[in-house]
Design a protein around this nucleic acid. Structure first.
Lengths: 281, 281
DNA sequence: TTGTATGCGTTATCAA
DNA sequence: TTGATAACGCATACAA
């Protein structure tokens, strides 16, 4: 039933009384074909809904038109936006983007990269994940460095491996702007929810936070910089609960990313507090 | 530089002094190979970081191990969650999931489906998008119905096309629970932000809303059911602004999805309101 | 256990 | 303008 073998270029050729090469020429418009034959072939292509096998095509011209992308988790709005934007850019150029979620697990990351190489993707884009770790496993660094010699690898993260292209994002500047904004609103007791310290971004942002506080002439309170479990909403909730238990709780809280911030917000509401006017996600 | 041709099974075979078939057997563990040769081959595989070409493999055994998934927009947390869950399930079974965002545009949807067929995916999962439209274009229905004859197609939406598997979600029940929850909290003036009426889900939920209100013994106010532009945060913001302009504004608002709800919430805060204790996303 | 030969569905080369 | 024919890289049936 389902196995109804799909038509191949040979089927079309036979039925049209031409050679497979001619059918291929009609498909790709790569060379002149007699009007009469072209029409005959064209009709059959439509009749059978013939679709050239991309696998065979890629195999023959070593051109998969595939780009691989790796991110920790598409449920994080940041990566979802990135994904949609990249997919669109790829599509406009005739490429198909394949996204895989690694949950920042090295094993998964390596596994997906391997599959991508098997699929002969023409480029790889790595966003966050293991690449953002403070101490990058040497084996991993070697691995992507080797991949980068076979296919272009773009790393949007900290990693500084040979042969890779690197995309740098000024997270520090972002943090400075946030602090400046809150300071301008009159906040003096500002807290920061960060994640594990082995993530490079955490360090960067924490440092930028300290700098910005100083620049704003505000005191940096040790107990206002809190480390929570991960980058999820529940971590945000956990963080704010701890902050509110402090004898002198902060008046403003910065989450290290969207999810942490939203989680903190939700928990805050669940605890019966009203949200101040200047709250922003 | 980059073109450094990757090793093939032939390269390994030649260097190991065995036949390509033997290398294949080592790779797939499909048959016995003399310990000595196996080790020799194994060593070369690692030395060259040999990865079998998935395209050639799929071509020869007509087994791509690929599953295609279509959704309107991964930036919508609902679809992002679905994506991650499906990817994991696929991965556990040895499959790779490819997601494409169609933005609910029929043209894009058809285009992506075509590419998937060319990639010879072994199954297709369609979530929302054109399939949720009130009036499904006949051409589209015919199209996916035809695809479904070549490869299994699962539709998570309204579409009732021949040969497709269908996944039904009881959105109406969800809406009933929300209304019951708000009613239990004492709300009487409940509003609903819906989207375009040509989307089937909108109708379903609106109807369920009306039913649930009646069941809760609450009056259904015409002006509390508002149609906003789309399924985004800005629509939520737009909706709540209009609601608050009413002479007798509602005390509770239901967004038709996460984004609309979050958008409404943000706008509410921006307008200087405090959030009530029983707010929930 | 091992090797040879063939098929998978294209594109590309080379003659005709 | 056309049609054979040879890659592309793997798995596999068959033979040794």
């Amino acid at each position: 039933m389902r196995g109804k073998r799909v038509a191949t270029i040979y089927d079309i050729a036979r039925e049209a009384g031409v050679s497979p090469a001619t059918v291929s020429r009609v498909m790709t418009n790569s060379a002149g074909v007699a009007q009469e034959k072209r029409e005959r072939v064209q009709a059959l292509i439509e009749a059978y809904h013939f679709r050239p096998n991309a696998l065979a095509k890629s195999l023959s011209d070593t051109h998969s038109k595939l780009i691989g992308m790796l991110c920790p988790d598409a449920r994080n709005p940041y990566y979802a936006s990135l994904f949609v934007a990249c997919e669109r850019a790829a599509y406009d150029r005739g490429y198909t983007l394949m996204l895989n979620n690694t949950l920042s697990q090295e094993e998964l990351e390596v596994s997906f990269l391997g599959k991508m190489m098997e699929q002969r993707v023409e480029a790889i884009l790595i966003c966050g994940g293991v690449c953002d770790r403070m101490v990058l496993p040497a084996s991993f660094r070697d691995y992507i460095s080797r991949l980068a010699q076979q296919t272009p690898v773009v790393v949007a993260g900290r990693v500084d491996a040979p042969h890779c292209y690197q995309l740098c994002i000024d997270h520090a500047e972002g943090m400075r702007q946030v602090v400046a904004h809150l300071a301008a609103l009159g906040h003096k007791k500002i807290a920061l929810l960060v994640s594990q310290y082995e993530i490079f971004l955490t360090l960067i942002k924490k440092q930028a936070f300290a700098d910005a506080m100083q620049q704003a002439g505000l005191p940096l309170q040790e107990e206002y910089v809190l480390q929570v479990t991960d980058f999820t909403e529940s971590s945000g909730a956990e963080g704010i609960k701890r902050l509110l238990r402090l004898p002198d709780p902060p008046t403003a809280v910065i989450g290290i990313n969207d999810l942490v911030a939203v989680g903190a917000m939700q928990q805050y509401l669940r605890m019966g507090y009203a949200v101040p006017h200047d709250c922003s996600f």
